[in-house]
Computed example of a mutant assay.
Amino acid sequence: MMNDKIVVTHSGNFHADDVFSVAALKSVFPTFTLIRTRDKEVIAKADVVIDVGGEHDAATDRFDHHQRGGAGERDNGVPYSSFGLIWQKYGLAICDDNQELANAIDAGLVSTIDAIDCGHVKGVAEGISLSQTISMFNPTWQEEGDFDAGFNEAVDFAARILARAIAAASGGLNAKAIVAEAIKNAQDPRVIVLEKYTPWKKTVHALSEQALYMVYPSQSGQWMIQTVPVEPGSFEDRKSLPKPWAGLSDAELQAETGIEDAMFCHNGLFIAGTTSFESTMKMAALALQE
């Protein structure tokens, strides 16, 4: 199409920052023509330049970070690569003007890719990273592969990852509001009831020092009681379920608790379930008495 923007990034070997930059632009521009080159004349005429050209100027859509002095860094010291620069300008629009969501994507995805690309790897988890996964789309030295074809495959993959990252972060932000409301409305601040399972740990730890148990329905229709850990990721609970329940199920658990529809209690005493809300609340009452 004659009105398509011309987007240029470098040719040859590619990395996660240029791949995700192009993937992000797919959410900004309905169509564009992508050219992978290091030709200075082509770069100069482009509408958007990514990870090449030695210039960062968001006003003219120049997003390189290889020039002397780089392209700046975040407050936490993580420098910007091309993906971070693209996200600085277009992330808010990609997230439908939700600044909190755009910030969450930067913190959870963009800044990690930037850090690895810039060699700022302190605190980055070991193992195969998303950046390394993207690099695997490059032809190996044993292959007579097409770098451009590999790049296009990587962009399609990255676009799906970015879309799911945005969906996950959006879900987390929405969950925060739901859990906060449940904490506010709890009849007993030690037992928080969710009408639908919602990710709750971060919000509970941020807003409630009293919460001991969470009660919620499972996807299979059962009702669960789950302990609140002393901190997110910990296997130690603020208050475990009663020790006599450990590992029991069905008739044995029903006899121990006196609850007719009790179904199971995990041997680790962090989760148990019944077939009804009322019975699970009875479990909570018994657990609080221990």
Rank of each mutant, 00 (worst) to 15 (best):
N3L: 13
I6R: 08
N13Y: 14
D18I: 06
D18M: 08
A24Q: 05
T31A: 13
R36A: 12
T37G: 05
R38T: 06
I43R: 01
I43Q: 05
A58D: 10
F63E: 00
R68C: 06
R68V: 15
R68A: 14
G72I: 06
S82R: 00
W87K: 00
L92F: 09
D96A: 15
N103E: 11
A107R: 15
G108R: 15
G108H: 13
S111G: 10
I113W: 04
I113Q: 10
I116Q: 10
I116D: 09
C118D: 04
V121M: 06
K122L: 10
G123S: 10
E126A: 14
S129C: 11
P139S: 08
P139L: 09
T140Y: 05
W141F: 12
W141N: 06
E143F: 05
G145M: 05
D146T: 07
G150V: 07
A154K: 00
R164E: 15
A167N: 12
A167T: 11
A168E: 12
V179W: 04
I183D: 02
A186L: 04
A186S: 11
I192K: 01
L194E: 03
L194A: 01
E195Y: 02
P199R: 13
P199I: 10
W200L: 08
W200V: 03
K202S: 14
T203I: 07
A211Y: 00
L212A: 05
Y216V: 01
M224I: 13
E236N: 10
K243E: 12
Q254R: 14
A255W: 01
E260L: 08
H266Y: 10
F270M: 08
I271G: 04
I271M: 13
T274I: 07
T280H: 09
T280P: 08
A284W: 10
A285S: 14
A287P: 04
L288R: 02
Q289V: 06
